[in-house]
Every structure is written in structure tokens, then in C-alpha cells.
């Protein structure tokens, strides 16, 4: 029973991370109506910025590295929105911005290989990686708990911003009815840039948290994008709260299935995703 509880707890901590992986994509889709295929690359860039900064200045605290990676990635996301995606959004066909983000993903991935090499990298967090917490009979790693704590704080903060700020109201209005939102005097393009920057910052956060737990390569973006898509589709298109819940579901599935079948990897995660899609299709609730 204790072992099962430990597994569930591990699953929840992993799920928090998956939620963060999907949150930026959910935001981009919900507000911009753009399927951002470069989201995975933004995650890896966030990880590589953190790894690079730590290599150059090992004494910089991890938290400062995390904030710097998020800020730089947010600036990159905003810049890409202004330079490419916003222009592509003027076309009526949603394929145009999607293909633009695909192109951006390819360029970013290759730039990363050229500048950082194709090796696997991880972020050294010192003793935190090995530290563990004892909660009664349950023992759990400190790093996953910290990851979950950060995810919970980020999701709570995101919810508060969306719920209580003018920016949040504008985001919700744009998500509901973009044309009528423009009528209300909302600076649509400016909100788009802020959302793209926020989404890229969340991607970087996910990247740094991933690099703390495992190794990341410039080619990891595609697999992160797949997880992000599953989180977004399960959680409801555009819902950040749903992204967190879906992340937890997939995280718990992965940890439980690894206990059952240690070679399964993400197989059961994808199977659960597929099963829920089939179930939704059968009950007519695909969208």
C-alpha cells in the first residue's frame, strides 16, 4: 500500500511537470488559435540556456538560472511572434501560421545543434538531485517535490493573472471572441505578443525542470511536443487548468506503468491518451 502511494506521489510530481510542458501550448492555442509546432524547441532552448549559464557561471543559484532562462525564452517567443507568427496569422488559413511555427522549429533545432552540439546535457542541481523526503512511511525524492511545488505555484499564479488582471480579462475576451474583443479597443497584436512571450517562458520553465531530472538533447523537442499535445487535447483546448489535470493523469499513468512494465517508456501514456480520445469520440465529445 505504501509502495502504491509512493508511486502515485511520484506520478503526481511528474504530472505537474507534464502540465507545465503543456501549459504554454494550451495558452498559445487558446488565445492565438495557433498550433505552435516550435513549442518543443522552446522547451529545449530553455534547458540549454540553463545548462549553458550554469557551465559559464557555476556559482549562480539555480533559481536565478531558471528565471534568466525563462526571461530569455520569453523574449525570444515575443520576438518570433512579432517577426513571423503575427504576420502569418493575417492569412485566413490556419495552416499558414502552423507551417511557420514548423519552420521556426526546424531552424531553432538546427541552430541549437550548431551552437551547443548534439550531446545530451543535464543541469547539475547539486545535492538536491539525491535528496529525499520522508513523509511517514513514504520516501520521495526532494527534486520531484520541488518540481511539483514550482508547477503548483506557476499554475496558481497563471490562474490568478488570468482571473484578476486586466491582461487576464483581455486574454479571456480574445479567447472567446477575437473580433468583438478588437471592437472593445483591445490591442490584439500586443496581447498576442504578451501571450507568446508567456507561453515561451513557460516552455523554458518546463525545459529547465526537465534538465534537472534528466538529460536533454537538441532533438528532444519533438517528444516534448507530443507530450504537450496530449496534455492540451486531454485537458481541453486552451485550458491551462485542464493542462495541469491532464499532466497529472499522464504522469501517474507513466509511473504506474513503469512499475508494471519497466520497458514501457511512454507506451501506456500514449495508450491512455488514445483510449480517452476513442471514448470521447464514442460519446460525441471530441472537441
Amino acid at each position: 500500500m505504501t509502495a502504491l502511494f509512493e508511486l502515485l506521489l511520484q506520478g503526481v510530481t511528474l504530472g505537474g511537470l507534464y502540465g507545465v510542458i503543456g501549459a504554454g501550448l494550451a495558452l498559445t492555442f487558446g488565445v492565438l488559435r495557433v498550433v505552435n509546432l516550435s513549442h518543443g524547441e522552446l522547451i529545449t532552448i530553455g534547458a540549454f540556456i540553463a545548462v549553458g549559464v550554469t557551465a559559464l557561471a557555476p556559482t549562480v543559484p539555480v533559481l536565478a538560472v531558471l528565471v534568466l532562462a525563462c526571461a530569455l525564452c520569453a523574449a525570444l517567443g515575443g520576438l518570433l511572434q512579432v517577426a513571423f507568427v503575427e504576420r502569418a496569422m493575417h492569412f485566413r488559413d490556419p495552416m499558414v501560421p502552423m507551417l511557420v511555427t514548423f519552420g521556426i522549429a526546424v531552424i531553432l533545432r538546427n541552430l541549437l545543434v550548431e551552437t551547443a552540439g548534439a550531446d545530451l546535457r543535464g543541469l547539475n542541481v547539486g545535492g538536491l538531485a539525491q535528496a529525499s523526503l520522508q513523509l511517514g512511511p513514504v520516501i520521495i525524492g526532494a527534486l520531484p517535490v520541488v518540481t511539483l511545488g514550482i508547477a503548483v505555484v506557476v499554475f496558481a499564479g497563471l490562474a490568478a493573472v488570468i482571473r484578476h488582471t486586466r491582461f487576464g480579462r483581455e486574454v479571456r475576451a480574445l479567447s472567446d471572441r477575437p473580433d468583438i474583443a478588437a471592437l472593445m479597443g483591445i490591442r490584439v497584436a500586443r496581447v498576442h505578443v504578451k501571450v507568446a512571450a508567456l507561453a515561451a517562458g513557460l516552455a523554458a520553465l518546463a525545459g529547465v525542470l526537465l534538465a534537472m531530472r534528466a538529460s536533454v538533447s537538441p532533438y528532444s523537442g519533438v517528444s516534448y511536443l507530443l507530450i504537450a499535445f496530449e496534455v492540451v487535447v486531454l485537458g481541453g483546448l486552451g485550458s491551462t487548468r485542464g493542462a495541469f489535470a491532464a499532466g497529472v493523469l499522464l504522469g501517474v499513468t507513466q509511473v504506474l506503468s513503469a512499475w508494471w512494465d519497466s520497458n514501457a517508456g511512454l507506451l501506456y501514456v500514449h495508450l491512455v491518451f488514445f483510449s480517452i480520445l476513442v471514448l470521447r469520440a464514442m460519446t460525441g465529445r471530441l472537441s
Partner: peptide
């Protein structure tokens, strides 16, 4: 026409 209010607000 049709009001088109913001449902999330």
C-alpha cells in the same frame, strides 16, 4: 446581432 458576449467573463 446575437449579442456575442464574452462567455468567460
Amino acid at each position: 446581432e446575437g449579442r456575442l458576449l464574452f462567455d468567460s467573463l
